[in-house]
Design a protein around this nucleic acid. Structure first.
Lengths: 142, 142
DNA sequence: CGTATATTGAAAACCATTTTCAACGTATCA
DNA sequence: TGATACGTTGAAAATGGTTTTCAATATACG
């Protein structure tokens, strides 16, 4: 699916404006690895388009989150990170404490057990986060 | 177990000093519900002991985390929270998006599945976080 | 094209956290 | 107990990421 189009339509529908900055930032966001912090994306964008400021990158990432192109997460390093939403499947993360690598995984069994826990507590889950921190295969030997 | 004693012994062993502030802050921490932010505990402490400053409460909570009395967590509201470590069992959290209530739970089956996921990715888990966000039984009807 | 209004970039404001520093308190040893 | 060394305290300032402000600019639409 064409995310530039998704953005354009979202903007039109909300009465917002489709600026060159927004197109550039989306393009750059799509070109990069996922789980970028605002700072990281800002540096990437600035290297090709020096006129674009941090505030605009930040506002635009928030906008992506609003229109469903991205999700904001934070992995406890004090920086918000944005990840591209691919498809509908929820996924969780393995995060290397040493090199910072982030691996995604899905596990329907865990999801099912979470639902059971919620039922036991008369709780209705709206969303969740599961993160496993440790050492990735690269770092485990060192 | 007597946590005042745990603190005293930790301080002695490290060559640190057992000040009245530290005793007061620990007492107040134990008297309050868990999952307090620095700000919240500071307000509690200050109401009884106006001389004690924010920085001291903050430093003391960090100290509790160091000596194993507390664990620092953050639930994505931009504030660090400290929870009393009770016993050895790891536990996870249900968090109400409406009233902010935090419920703890344990589920060994989920832990086991997490371990399987890690093995599949040649990953060694050092710690993890699992949080289920949604509506608690109180809020679900409203 | 002209107008209304959303957006931009730079700088300032924010807010939780952390550090600085001089005054003070605590542990230790004589 | 008294003197000394040094860890701790509170207030204020610094920090770092995020968010807002504001005047200038760009966009959408009639």
């Amino acid at each position: 699916m064409d995310l530039q189009k998704v953005l354009t339509e979202y903007l039109a529908q909300k009465g917002l404006k489709n600026t060159s900055q927004r197109k550039i930032i989306l393009q750059e966001f799509l070109d990069q690895a996922s789980h970028l912090s605002t700072e990281e994306l800002y540096l990437k964008v600035r290297s090709k388009h020096p006129g674009i400021g941090y505030a605009t990158v930040h506002r635009t990432l928030k906008l992506f989150a609003e229109c469903g192109i991205a999700v904001e997460r934070n992995f406890g390093d004090g920086q918000g990170r944005f990840e591209l939403t691919h498809g509908e499947e929820h996924h969780d993360h393995l995060i290397c404490n040493r090199c910072g690598m982030i691996i995604e995984f899905e596990n329907p069994q865990i999801e099912k057990l979470q639902e059971q826990v919620a039922v036991q507590h008369n709780f209705v889950i709206e969303n969740h986060r599961l993160e496993l921190y440790g050492l990735c295969s690269e770092c485990v030997g060192k």
